[in-house]
Amino acid sequence: MGLLLTAGCAAPLQTDRLLQTARAFPQPVELSEVPFFPQEAYQCGPAALASALNWTGVPATPEALAPQVYLPERKGSLQLELLAAARRHGRIPYVLRPQLESLFAEVASGNPVLVLQNLGLSWIPKWHYAVVVGFDLPRNQIVLRSGLKQRHVIPIHVFERTWRRGNYWATVVMPPDRLPHTAEELPYLQSVVPLERLKRWREAAAAYNAALKRWPKSLPAQLGRGNSLYALGDLHGAEQAFRQAVRDHPDSVPALNNLAQTLADQGRWRQAERVALRAVELGGPLLDASRETLDQILQHTSTNNLLGPD
């Protein structure tokens, strides 16, 4: 029996390490305003997601979220589908590093954390989603919105064992104008990009703006900002974004190509042609796209023979 229980649990718990440095988070933290939705059968995914979304100002109910995340044949919700659903509501999910420190850092910065737990054992799994809303290191306690309990308080090491069986999976759900405390550049931007496919341009632009405040020279963020503003019809803003991208990354074909297209759309053909030519000269895997942009500009300038204002 003891063997069965300890199998796979040989590695020391992170809790031990963390409790030794309890001074890092001396004060108890609790985000008591995070709303609670008691879960109905099989619906802990929608309930946990509703908590996280409502905290960011999206008034979604578990009933409304269920068709967006529930997988009938599996009688549950997959992690990746929770992320996708958050994006459908114009929010940015960000999966944390698998460490208690990251989890607590987010909660301490005011961001509740949605976690996957296996409340049972590896061979009798009970997969469950809950939302961490508080912790108290000196008293070794963690506070969750979980199942039917609005305030589920358990020792941190008990939580960690259930969380470890869920491979330490945790995500925050952020409003687009705020970065997670522990955000890293590429993973964050990769999580933003699907908002473009969902045509959530306004939120995408806000997220790229937030990213540029922390990583001012990030090429994907600069391009994303330009593309989003372009989609919103703000050609001037898009041009500024692409110009900045070209300044910081003079050899970026996407930056040059998109700047050329934006200039052409504003009737500034001479400038557009110059920029498009540079993109084509650089070649590379996107040559087809940049050549097409150039051709389209040349077509216009040759037929009209009327070069617009520079």
Binding site: Q39, A41, Y42, Q43, C44, G45, A48, L71, R74, K75, G76, S77, L78, Q79, L80, L83, A84, A85, A86, R87, R88, L116, N118, L119, P125, K126, W127, H128, Y129, G147, G166, Q190, S191, V193, P194, R197, L198
Partner: peptide, 24 residues
């Protein structure tokens, strides 16, 4: 549409192995 390319790859390969949180 809400998934990134790498999330789509993961889902395509492991849709029946990934844990489905149900709480039941």
């Amino acid at each position: 549409d809400g998934l990134t390319d790498s999330e789509v790859q993961t889902l395509a390969a492991k849709i029946d192995q990934l844990p489905a949180g149900a709480g039941v």
